[in-house]
Write a protein that binds this DNA or RNA. Sequence first.
DNA 1: CATTTTATGTCGCTT
DNA 2: AAGCGACGTAAAATG
Lengths: 237, 237
Amino acid sequence: MRLVIAQCQVDYTGRLTAHLPWARRLIIVKADGSVSVHADDRAYKPLNWMSPPCTLTEREPAADEAAAVSALDPQITTVWEVDSAGGDHLQILLGDISLDVTEELGVDPGLQKDGVEAHLQELLAENPDAFGEGWSVVQREYMTPIGPVDLLCRDAEGTYVAVEVKRRGEIDGVEQLTRYLDLMNRDHLLGDHVLGVFAAQQIKPQARTLATDRGISCLTVDYDALRGMDHPEERLF
Amino acid sequence: MRLVIAQCQVDYTGRLTAHLPWARRLIIVKADGSVSVHADDRAYKPLNWMSPPCTLTEREPAADEAAAVSALDPQITTVWEVDSAGGDHLQILLGDISLDVTEELGVDPGLQKDGVEAHLQELLAENPDAFGEGWSVVQREYMTPIGPVDLLCRDAEGTYVAVEVKRRGEIDGVEQLTRYLDLMNRDHLLGDHVLGVFAAQQIKPQARTLATDRGISCLTVDYDALRGMDHPEERLF
DNA sequence: CATTTTATGTCGCTT
DNA sequence: AAGCGACGTAAAATG
């Protein structure tokens, strides 16, 4: 990884065209070939960047580039040309350089995540009581011609229930579950009428309204409480 | 802006829970308060981060933290605790530090963009000939009950045409235009039959197929050529 | 302030 | 390679 802090002017042409006037910025060149140009804000997002695979060429400024600089602009010390396979191009004119360090980081062991939709689905599959007394899980990822239903359950009366699990419940998810229910109820393979439950950690009011309007029950899932019901020794960390 | 390269172990709890084992990484602390932890890959995306507003507290390792370290783990030199208003928390244990520099960057003049959807729409509105000889623009952002149609035009015969403009033409855009056309043709306010044109810099094959199947014409827009037809002195740069 | 749309979205998985 | 969905999506425009 190479870190450069320098006065720079950046021009990007690719999916769009973008221009950065002269200013002091951080430029990161990673081992994967990526180049990103950061200001001191915008959180982790760079002002401009090039994704790998791409090649970085460092060259002396051409005579006309040096001459074209106005009195207000800094002297150009180096020009970086970054080219991607897709034809995108990033040009960085470098002026005064106040930092230029290269450090070896090695391969990263990577990020361990916990608490995404898959885990929510696992937890619900292991704790169908979260839906109600006497509920059982028939199958996870129950396949239909238009995709898998997250959970197929039966309630206390033995009626089949299709459950759509989301971390954040929005209208899209209700539409998705509606399509599944339409299909499953058309086939009559699962009895007279398959019910629907929309389960999420947080359900947007619009989604709740639409679900209710379509006879779909909503369940707001408390992830931590559910995890407490689960076997704590099975957690990742 | 502060740049630190160090052995570190990171734990995040917030919308999800995530853990990074010990490894050498880059840590960026920006003037906006954000903290991000980068490996030498994943392009510009950090492994873990905290968005502003948040507070960074640097402290000595507690006795038990120092004691809990196994023989294989590095000696903990410092602990960073990053807290956001929303209750998110990022803890960074720092081991050997090989770089720790702070540089003032100042305020960035910011990014100038050109070539986004809005510009495409402007250019097409100013050059309806791009659609065909004798075309005219009736209105931009023509309102319908389900949203605005990008451009309402009339072709050489005077027939109304709804134009959907996208930078990249995908199925979603065709669906959107279809909904507009259904609505407009139901009302008969704009004559017998409103035609549709799907205009984009690049149109995905599936989108083209779907559009054609629905009787919607496709127009691949050459942004540079269109800009050439436009007044060059009005360009941003 | 809440909602919708855009994004050089990115990333990972499936066909 | 292209399609599809999730993301700690974020950020901007809009009502």
